[in-house]
């Protein structure tokens, strides 16, 4: 079990990052919040606890890499990068504006800390493979982390990447499947039932771990034991809640993309501010 202080700190960071997400929605009036919020705890744990990155030097050669295959979840990445200090938080207020550094899908040439131009689903795992392979070729020990959505798994390019990652023994590659169970058209099992996800990856030569992807303790336990199996890529199947943290939006496909109303946005901001003060108190009590 991960250290209590470590967990308390990450929970607080995650709540602050959720505030950043709301700040962008406030600026743009909308956003793909569902998947951003379901995966945000994982992204927070990676950047604030696990990854070797330096906001002052985002292109540092030996840095760990992170990319979102499901690029539409970029609000999570923008929120965490901002909180981590990769760029000024005022940039968050440009979301949805023309020529913003934080477009609807991430652009590696616009924003420091973004590693790939993703958004077309099913591309991310192949790109992550390439980064991990390059690390092996160069004898470097950085790791590559990628998040894919569950709805994205029917895309065949994922399975091409899965076969290749196993063949090349990429144990420096970690892929999280953000298994929030909902995609834009509804319940993933109704749109295209891709279960059992874990058995598929095992049959494709991966080590598989199964966790609650909104539980910081479980996220840290999984991250602490990577690679799950030497010589194999790791897949962490994360059960998550879509739109996690929006009391009125959790587990609703309608919040895949949220056209925010003033009223609900006010409510969300208020609830998140309360959560942040509560978590701050909890953290202090542990000191």
């Amino acid at each position: 079990m991960a250290d209590k202080k470590r967990v308390a700190n990450l929970k607080l960071q995650a709540a602050k990052c959720r505030q950043n997400v709301l700040r962008m929605v406030r600026a743009g009036g909308h956003g793909h919040v569902g998947g951003a919020l379901s995966s945000l705890d994982i992204v927070t744990a990676l950047y604030f606890d696990k990854m070797n990155v330096d906001p002052e030097n985002p292109k540092m050669e030996d840095r760990d890499r992170f990319l979102l295959s499901a690029g539409h979840k970029c609000l999570a990445q923008y929120a965490v990068l901002a909180e981590k200090g990769f760029f000024d938080k005022e940039v968050l207020d440009t979301y949805g504006k023309l020529a913003a550094k934080i477009p609807g899908h991430p652009d590696m040439h616009k924003l420091p800390g973004v590693e790939a131009n993703t958004g077309a689903l099913g591309h991310g795992m192949s790109i992550a493979n390439g980064m991990a392979m390059a690390g092996k070729l160069d004898g470097k020990d950085y790791k590559v982390y990628a998040i894919t959505g569950d709805g994205e798994l029917p895309e065949g390019s994922n399975w091409e990447a899965a076969v290749a990652a196993a063949k090349f023994g990429l144990d420096n590659l970690v892929v999280f499947v953000d298994n929030n169970g909902l995609q834009i058209s509804g319940d993933v099992t109704k749109v295209m039932d891709m279960r059992p996800i874990d058995e598929k990856f095992k049959a494709f030569g991966w080590a598989v771990k199964y966790i609650d992807g909104n539980d910081m303790n479980q996220i840290l336990d999984a991250l602490d034991s990577i690679p799950e199996e030497k010589g194999k890529p790791t897949m962490i199947l994360c059960d998550t809640v879509k739109a996690k943290g929006l009391s009125f939006g959790e587990n609703k496909a309608g919040f895949h993309f949220w056209n925010a109303t003033e009223e609900l946005l006010d409510q969300a901001e208020k609830e998140m501010a309360e959560l942040v003060s509560k978590l701050e108190k909890e953290k202090e009590e542990l000191v």
Binding site: L121, G122, G151, E152, L153, P154, E155, Q183, I184, S185, K190, V191, M192, M194
Partner: peptide, 24 residues
């Protein structure tokens, strides 16, 4: 998986049996 956006959902509501979602 884009029936809501491509608007084939309009057809889907009327003829669910002849609307096939192939996933992404």
């Amino acid at each position: 998986d884009l029936a809501g956006a491509t608007k084939t959902s309009t057809f889907q509501k009327a003829f669910p049996d002849r609307h096939i979602d192939c996933g992404i």
